[in-house]
Nucleic acid binder design. Structure first.
Length: 292
DNA sequence: ATTTGGTGTTGTG
DNA sequence: CACAACACCAAAT
């Protein structure tokens, strides 16, 4: 009803030419920087507008919001990751079955807990944990003396307690000790790709049910920069019908990022979900795209 | 575009 | 033992 009024206000700056330049600059900026998933504030600042103005201007010209545009670019790239991976996955998985059970870009050596250990709900386990800054927000790292057992993400200081609770609930009988000094080197290494060395693999401990561990092991074989669908994974560990079961298992992946659950996408081309927020999944995909 | 009916695994009562 | 919940999927509206 007040459309006329708003039109008049924006007509104050009689320069659609300038508007076009700004939108165009924004599109280029987003296309160049989508890997870093820049927040609205950054993009707005780059074209010299307040976030509020910019968001409205962009939507008027492009038909979609800056955020939607960013998501579309990410999705495009995710689908590219999927392209050649169909056969690649089969061979990687088959080969990895008989050969050494390890290895992707972040060289990893893992051992799974026995089902018996799993049933004890972590009893007898000593977990040392700490929060550390990462490219994807504050990262909670949990280690046992056998290796890394947990990696989770928090958006802010405020949801750290919730994230910690989420993780400790998975092994309720374990003993937890807060000691960031001990987990810091581990965190530093995980997020610095220059420190990924085959001769000194990162040790992981996979604590889960038999089925879950099989799924997570499959994820470890997905090559950097490639992706698979939930049903691809299902076909390998069980039957293609089990895509949904795989989804749940992937969702319970306790060592996110290291076990690359962000490389699993929906068959219909969608991104699928992410336990720590789809935005984070996008960010990690972008981070990888920047290092192929 | 949305809805529906089909899936396997897991946690709960 | 049954049942509901789930980071899914394909086919039918």
């Amino acid at each position: 009803m007040s459309e006329l009024a708003t039109q008049e206000v924006s007509a104050g700056g009689v320069a659609p030419r300038g508007d076009y330049a700004r939108v165009s600059a924004a599109i280029h900026y987003i296309s160049d920087n989508w890997r870093a998933q820049p927040p609205l504030d950054d993009i707005a600042a780059h074209v010299g507008l307040s976030p509020f103005h910019f968001q409205r201007l962009f939507k008027r010209w492009a038909g979609i919001s800056p955020k939607e545009f960013l998501q579309a670019l990410t999705l495009d790239h995710a689908r590219e990751m999927l392209k050649g991976s169909a056969n690649l996955l089969d061979t990687a998985l088959e080969l990895g079955m008989s050969g050494p059970a390890r290895l992707h870009d972040l060289f990893v050596d893992h051992e799974a807990m026995t089902p018996g250990d799993y049933k004890r709900r972590g009893a007898g386990l000593q977990m040392t944990y700490g929060f550390h800054s990462s490219p994807f927000g504050s990262a909670l790292v949990m280690i046992t003396r056998h290796g890394v057992a947990g990696l989770a993400f928090a958006d802010s200081e405020d949801d750290r307690p919730g994230v910690l609770a989420d993780m400790t609930a998975r092994w309720p009988c374990a003993v937890y000790e807060h000691d960031p000094a001990r987990t810091a080197p581990c965190a530093a290494r995980i997020f610095d790709s220059r420190r990924w060395k085959p001769e000194d693999p990162l040790k992981l401990v996979l604590i889960g049910t038999d089925f879950e561990v099989r799924v997570w092991e499959a994820l470890l074989k997905l090559p950097f920069g490639h992706a698979a669908t939930y049903s691809d994974i299902a076909a390998h560990v069980c039957t293609p019908k089990a895509a949904r079961a795989v989804g749940s298992a992937v969702g319970r992946n306790p060592i996110s990022f290291v076990v690359p659950c962000h490389r699993v996408l929906r068959k219909d081309g969608g991104l699928g979900g992410y336990h720590w927020g789809v935005t984070r999944k996008q960010a990690i995909i972008g981070w990888e795209a920047g290092r192929v």
